[in-house]
């Protein structure tokens, strides 16, 4: 049913650290690989070696420049995939019931056998998280690697979404955002995690952590205090040597 659950037992999702992401696109590639070889229709490519190559991706990395009123601009790499919203507008618009949000973990999924490929769910998503596969004619979206996270055939360290497992910078975190004591919830709490387009009222589960503000040339170095002299007056043998050498004519202090 396309009626949204009033609440879900857990809120599985991602926390993406914009401070740490280096924009390498490794998450994009690992996502495309895993989701082409496993659950559901493969993510097709059109004209992969021709002009204007195009393909289906469940995760894409944008790059932005933020120019403050004063000071130098900052580059922010910005991975974006399904945010598994609590009030997911993509689910309620589905005419066939192919789109649904799971009560047990809050993951938003598409039953590809029921999808008619009308595209309305992609229209309803403000984040561009859903893409109609041009070869299969069905809607594709991030599954939060539902075929990895519960897959006991995989080693425990691999039972997390492919993008999180792959990220070489540790910019992606996976967990239960409905549990205030979980690592991801604590991370969001301590770093001031935020929602994308909160005014849309979608209540995204995925959160983003802000990048640190850029250093200024005028800033005091963090190391400067450590370079200060630790003793104001000298003592002992070196003190005697210092004073004795001062008394000898020639040279200057």
């Amino acid at each position: 049913m396309t009626t949204l659950p009033t609440s879900t037992d857990r809120k599985l999702g991602l926390v993406i650290d914009l401070d740490t992401c280096v924009g390498c696109h490794a998450c994009v590639i690992s996502c495309k690989g895993w989701n082409t070889e496993n659950y559901g229709a493969p993510l097709s490519d059109q004209r992969p070696y021709g002009t204007e190559p195009m393909g289906t991706f469940l995760n894409r990395v944008h790059s932005y420049e933020v120019q403050p009123e004063a000071g130098s601009a900052q580059t922010v790499h910005f991975p974006k995939s399904c945010l598994h919203c609590e009030d997911a507008p993509c689910v309620t618009v589905c005419p066939t019931g192919a789109s649904y949000k799971r009560v047990e973990d809050g993951i938003v999924l598409v039953n590809e056998d029921s999808c008619i490929g009308c595209g309305l769910c992609a229209w309803a998503c403000p984040y561009g998280a859903r893409e109609l596969d041009q070869a299969e004619g069905v809607m594709k979206k991030c599954t939060l690697c539902v075929d990895r996270i519960y897959n006991e055939n995989l080693p425990e360290e691999d039972q997390i979404p492919s993008c999180v497992r792959t990220c070489p910078a540790g910019a992606r975190h996976f967990g239960d955002l409905g549990d205030p004591n979980s690592d991801v919830s604590q991370l969001v709490e301590s770093r001031g995690g935020f929602d994308l387009m909160p005014e849309m009222g979608t209540k995204p589960v995925n959160k983003y952590l802000p990048p640190r503000l850029k250093d200024s040339w005028d800033d005091q170095s963090l190391l400067a205090p450590m370079l200060e002299p630790v003793a104001d007056e000298s003592r002992g043998f070196l003190s005697w040597l210092d004073k004795t050498l001062d008394k000898i004519p020639g040279g200057s202090a």
Partner: peptide, 20 residues
């Protein structure tokens, strides 16, 4: 979510050619 830090401008699309 970066609007309160300054003016945000797209400097690189995720891919080199237009997508769906």
């Amino acid at each position: 979510g970066l609007g309160d830090r300054g003016t945000v401008r797209s400097i690189a699309h995720p891919h080199t050619s237009p997508n769906y």
